[in-house]
C-alpha cells in the first residue's frame, strides 16, 4: 500500500524489523500490524481480530510481546520489532519452533505465530515455567482449534521439563 491520497495525514517512521532497518511513510492511523502485513508484506503475523483479543498478531516490540494490531505504527518509531519470520536462521527453526512441531502444538496454524512469539518471551524471562505460568503467559492468545493441550506440552518440552 502507498500513502498517497493526501487527505490521510502521514508521517515518516523508522523501525528495525527482524534486524533490518526501514524508513517508511505511513498513514498516521495505521497500526504496526497494517505496516507489517500490507507495507512490508510480512504476513506471518495474522489479523485474527484487529481488536486486541486473539493474539495472532503478537510480535516482540523492543523485546516485549505486544498485539501489533493495538500499536500505531507511529508508536514503534525507533523501536525494534521481531516477527515470526525473524526467528529461524538460514531456514533452520529454533528449538522452540521444533518443540511445537514435535509436540503438534497447533492444528490449522493460524494462531501459531502468535503462540510461538508469546512462548518465546516467556521462556526468555522464565526458562523453567510451571504449567500455571505457561497458561498465564499464553492467556492472551486464542487457539480456536483449542489445541491448548498440545501447546502446553510444546512449551513444557521447549523448557526442557520433559
Amino acid at each position: 500500500m502507498n500513502t498517497s491520497l493526501s487527505e490521510y495525514p502521514s508521517s515518516s517512521v523508522n523501525l528495525i524489523v527482524n534486524e533490518q532497518a526501514h524508513q517508511l511513510s505511513v498513514r498516521d492511523h495505521w497500526t504496526l500490524l497494517d505496516v507489517l502485513r500490507d507495507v512490508l508484506e510480512l504476513t506471518g503475523s495474522k489479523r485474527g481480530c484487529d481488536r486486541g483479543e486473539c493474539g495472532s498478531c503478537t510480535v516482540l516490540l523492543d523485546g516485549v510481546p505486544v498485539y501489533s494490531c493495538q500499536i500505531l505504527a507511529l508508536q514503534s518509531q525507533g523501536k525494534t520489532v521481531i516477527t515470526i519470520e525473524g526467528l529461524s536462521q538460514n531456514g533452520v527453526m529454533t528449538a522452540l519452533q521444533q518443540a511445537f512441531l514435535d509436540n503438534d502444538g497447533g492444528q490449522c496454524g493460524y494462531c501459531t505465530p502468535g503462540f510461538v512469539i508469546s512462548s518465546l518471551a516467556l521462556l526468555r524471562d522464565n526458562p523453567n515455567p510451571t504449567d500455571k505460568e505457561i497458561c498465564d503467559a499464553l492467556s492472551g492468545n486464542i487457539c480456536r482449534c483449542n489445541a491448548y493441550g498440545r501447546i502446553i506440552e510444546s512449551v513444557r518440552s521447549a523448557s526442557g521439563r520433559n
Binding site: 506471518g44 495474522k46 515470526i84 519452533q97 512441531l101 496454524g109 501459531t112
Partner: peptide
C-alpha cells in the same frame, strides 16, 4: 505412528500463506 503434522513447519515460520496473505 505419530509423524509430525504435514505443512506445520511452514506454519511455524510464518511462510504458510492463507487467503488474506
Amino acid at each position: 505412528r505419530s509423524v509430525n503434522r504435514h505443512h506445520f513447519p511452514e506454519k511455524l515460520t510464518g511462510d504458510a500463506k492463507y487467503s488474506a496473505d
